[in-house]
């Protein structure tokens, strides 16, 4: 018998308030899923000028998703404050509550107008009830996360959720409007020959990462002795979901710029939640030097390098970056 998200969360014996929060966030994602699948209907009905409207409607889906999640989270009454990739500053919710929520309402937004993969990522941390609260309450390492998840809106809608007891995969039954458990306690294959990275950035990589990719590309004739496949969806959720299903490694390393090293992915909204989910599924995540879950961000929008996936490949990549290979 297929279990629903609600049933699964009850089984996992977590505080009722946390269950409520996760269920509510997922309800919000259900709304986003239905918007994403009909994003253009209004514009089509609005007739002419479709091309221009498309740019606007793209913004709309970002903004709408943010508003949906913000409202949903505030309405639960169990969130102390929230931080969103779409919000400049943190938003205070309920003074008596004990959870902090971070989320990226719509990851991969450059994919919206090309009907590509998009997703939502979230994480939840707990704080003491009634304690003083400010922006720095969010600046903790990923070890403080009690639950994280993502939803991938593609041809179907699928999700991954962890409450620190393994990572479970779900798929949306869109007729019953319910997330159903498909893979409880998913385990990422320890090794894989699929890598996700943007090869066109190689001019900007550090020497270690450059060497790592050079050896990859030589395949079975090089030092790695096996052939690698490459994928790049330009959507972190899309690329990561593939890794949860069949293993592999996703790498967005630091890039050289005129202002020194820079990175693309945000720790609070992308790096840490994904690292939590992946470690709960037996994989690992690093910035090349330390585990992503150990990184303490110095501001809520801080970015870092992210290498995440099957243990073996992540470790190999990190040792190249550290100049050990």
């Amino acid at each position: 018998m297929t279990r629903s998200l609600e049933t699964r969360l009850e089984e996992q014996d977590i505080p009722a308030e946390l269950t409520l929060l996760i269920n509510s966030i997922m309800k919000g994602c259900l709304q986003i899923a239905s918007l994403a699948s009909s994003a253009y209907q209004e514009d089509i009905l609005g007739d002419s000028g479709i091309t221009n409207v498309q740019g606007e409607s793209q913004k709309k889906l970002d903004t709408l998703s943010n508003e949906i999640l913000k409202d949903t989270i505030i309405n639960t009454g169990v969130a102390r404050a929230l931080a969103s990739e779409e919000e400049e500053t943190v938003v205070e919710c309920d003074g008596e509550a004990s959870y902090l929520v971070c989320f990226d309402p719509l990851d991969g937004s450059s994919n919206i107008d090309v009907n590509g993969s998009i997703g939502t990522i979230f994480s939840i941390m707990s704080v003491e009830k009634g304690c003083d609260w400010n922006e720095s309450s969010f600046l903790r390492s990923g070890r403080a996360i009690v639950s994280a998840g993502y939803v991938l809106y593609g041809a179907s809608t699928v999700a991954a959720i962890s409450v620190g007891k393994g990572t479970d995969l779900y798929a949306l039954d869109n007729i019953e409007k319910a997330f159903l458990l498909t893979n409880p306690g998913v385990q990422i294959p320890t090794h894989s020959n699929e890598v996700a990275l943007n090869m066109l950035n190689q001019r900007l990589w550090d020497d270690g990462f450059k060497a790592y990719v050079e050896d990859l590309v030589q395949g079975s004739e090089g030092p790695r002795k096996i052939d690698f496949k490459m994928r790049w969806f330009a959507s972190m959720v899309g690329d990561l979901h593939r890794i949860f299903v069949r293993g592999g490694c996703f790498a967005y390393p630091r890039l050289r710029s005129s202002h020194g090293w820079r990175a693309k992915l945000r720790i609070l909204y992308e790096g840490a939640p994904m690292a939590f989910l992946i470690e709960q599924a037996g994989g690992s995540a690093t910035n090349g030097f330390e585990s992503i879950l150990d990184v303490v961000p110095s501001n809520i929008h801080q970015r870092d390098a992210v290498i995440v996936g099957s243990n073996e490949e992540v470790a190999i990549c990190a040792s190249y970056i550290q100049g050990l290979c």
């Binding site: 041809a155 179907s156 995969l169 798929a171 869109n174 007729i175 893979n183 299903v245």
Partner: peptide, 17 residues
């Protein structure tokens, strides 16, 4: 085909790898 995919039709789809 689109309906099978978007409705999450568990009679046709398997989400197990």
């Amino acid at each position: 085909v689109s309906n099978i995919l978007s409705s999450g039709d568990f009679n046709h789809l398997s989400f197990e790898p």
